[in-house]
Design a protein around this nucleic acid. Structure first.
Lengths: 141, 141
DNA sequence: ATGATACTTGACTATTTTGGTCAGGTTTAT
DNA sequence: ATAAACCTGACCAAAATAGTCAAGTATCAT
C-alpha cells in the first residue's frame, strides 16, 4: 500500500490553495513558504494535478494556480489518484488474469485486500477538499 | 502507510497453518511450498510472530509451528502489529509534542490521517484469522 | 548415538521507491 | 525588458523492501 508524503503534500497544498478559491491565483512559492514543502517538489505535484484537471495554471507575474472545480466537488480520491497514490497493496492485482503468486488460484488473502481497498476508498470518497478547508477554518496558516 | 508483502505473507502463512489448528505442527517448509514464499523469508516472519506469542514453535523432526491462541482470537491487527506493518502514514505523528513540519501547529491534514488510521484499524480489528480460514474453506490449497 | 528435520539468529544485499534537487527552459504582467 | 511564475526532464541519495546466505541449536525417529 502506498500513501506517502506526496499525497499528503498534495492535500496540504490544495487546502492552502482552496482558501483563495475564486479570489486570486496562489503561487507555489507562497504555498511552499506557508506549508514548508520544497518548491521543486510542489512543481512536480502540481504538474500532475493540472493534468488531471484538478487545478488550472495562470502563467506570468502574479500567476499561480486556481482550482478547476469547486472545492466541494474535489474528493480526496481524485487527489490521490492524480498524484499516483494508489490505495492498493497487492501484487495479486497486477496479473489479473492469472492467480496471484503465478499460480492458477487466487492467494488466500486476495479477497481481503479487495475489501480493504473498498473500505479505504469509501472513506476518501466521502471527504472533499471543502470538508478539510472547513475543518481548518479557525486555524492559523 | 505501509502494508506490504510481509504482512500479506504473514496472513497467508497463518491461514495455511490455521487449517491444522489442534491437529499437528506445520513446518515452514510445507508452507513455503504451498504458498510459494521463500523459506528464509518465512523464518524471519515467524520469528516475529513467535515473539508476539501468536504462534508456538515445536522443534525437531515432525516439528513446525502451531497457533498459540484460537484462530478466532487472532485479529489481523495482531498479525500486522507483530510483523511491524504499521497502518500509519504520517510523519506528523513522530514528533507528537510539536506540530508536524517542525512548526508549532499541526499540519492541515493531521486530523485526516488520524481518522483514516482509525477507519482502517476498525476494519482489521473485526477480521480474525478464523474468518479468513472459513472464507477459503472450499478452495484448493 | 546419530542423522535428518526443523527451528533460530544475524548479517548481508540487490532492487525499488521515495522524496527530493538541479538545470534550463517558456509565458506573461507590469 | 525583466522579474515572477509556471514547466519539464534528468538526476540522485537515502531508506525500505524483499529477500538470500551462513552458521548454528534442538529434538525426534530409528
Amino acid at each position: 500500500m502506498r500513501l506517502t508524503s506526496k499525497g499528503r503534500y498534495a492535500v496540504m497544498a490544495l487546502v492552502d490553495l482552496a482558501r483563495f478559491d475564486g479570489i486570486n491565483p496562489v503561487s507555489l512559492r507562497d504555498i511552499s513558504l506557508r506549508q514548508g514543502i520544497s518548491l521543486d517538489y510542489l512543481e512536480q505535484i502540481f504538474s500532475k494535478l493540472r493534468k488531471k484537471e484538478i487545478v488550472q495554471s495562470v502563467r506570468g507575474t502574479q500567476g499561480g494556480y486556481i482550482l478547476n472545480r469547486k472545492a466541494k466537488e474535489i474528493k480526496l480520491t481524485n487527489i490521490f489518484d492524480a498524484v499516483d497514490e494508489k490505495v492498493k497493496t497487492v501484487q495479486c492485482k497486477k496479473e489479473s488474469k492469472k492467480g496471484c503468486n503465478g499460480k492458477s488460484t487466487k492467494c488466500l488473502t486476495h479477497n481481503l485486500w479487495d475489501e480493504l481497498e473498498t473500505h479505504i476508498n469509501n472513506f476518501f470518497d466521502k471527504k472533499s477538499l471543502d470538508d478539510l478547508v472547513k475543518e481548518n477554518l479557525e486555524r492559523r496558516f
